[in-house]
């Protein structure tokens, strides 16, 4: 019986002493075009993984993992979504299905502030299909441990050919926003 208890303790100890927090939320993108007032936007609420791993005292952000299937990004026009997936994301992922968008942040410096729970700065590593890049991001976790993240990515940096359709052409910079809520 004692051995069983010790075994169970060993199995569950990482869970008992870990502060991995699972989130739900949405990720969106917004790209300006060559026509003023015409922007292309899309979003998804379906994450394959969305979690943050804190230290016990919630002062150290050990890791954030975000995984999104590109096929779940919707712009409001089905044919456009199909295009985006087939001609951008599948190309990026070298025809591998599903085309995953991944973000990992495993080193961040955090501090408590008066108005928010913690403020963390770190360098996030992104993997869009087979293209990788890094980006400095700032995360502010509020008292409910929710956070909003916003950053720009360059299509050229990702070696994405600038998408264009019937005279409308995207600009290089795309704004990515994530709103996440503790489950």
């Amino acid at each position: 019986m004692r051995n069983v208890l010790i075994t169970l303790f060993l199995i569950f100890s990482p869970v008992l002493f870990s502060k991995e927090i699972l989130y739900s939320g949405d990720v969106s993108f917004r790209a300006e075009t060559n026509v003023p007032g015409l922007t292309i936007e899309g979003s998804s609420k379906i994450f394959k993984k969305l979690s943050a791993d804190f230290s016990d005292d919630l002062l150290t952000l050990k890791k954030i993992e975000v995984e999104l299937d590109a096929q779940t990004l919707k712009t409001g026009i089905d044919l456009r979504d199909q295009h985006m997936f087939e001609k951008v994301f599948l190309v990026l992922s070298a025809k591998e299905k599903p085309a995953l968008l991944k973000m990992n942040l495993d080193k961040a410096t955090c501090e408590k502030t008066a108005s928010i729970l913690i403020k963390c700065n770190g360098e996030a590593n992104f993997l869009f299909g087979k293209k990788a890049f890094s980006k400095k991001i700032e995360l502010n976790f509020d008292k409910n441990q929710n956070t909003d993240v916003s950053f720009n990515i360059s299509l050229k940096e990702l070696a994405i050919e600038i998408p264009s359709y019937l005279g409308i052409e995207l600009e290089d910079s795309v704004v990515i926003k994530m709103k996440v809520f503790k489950k």
Binding site: V35, P36, G37, L38, T39, E41, G76, I77
Partner: peptide
Amino acid sequence: IRLNYSSCLA
């Protein structure tokens, strides 16, 4: 409006 196109030129 649903697609958030704010310019008629779209």
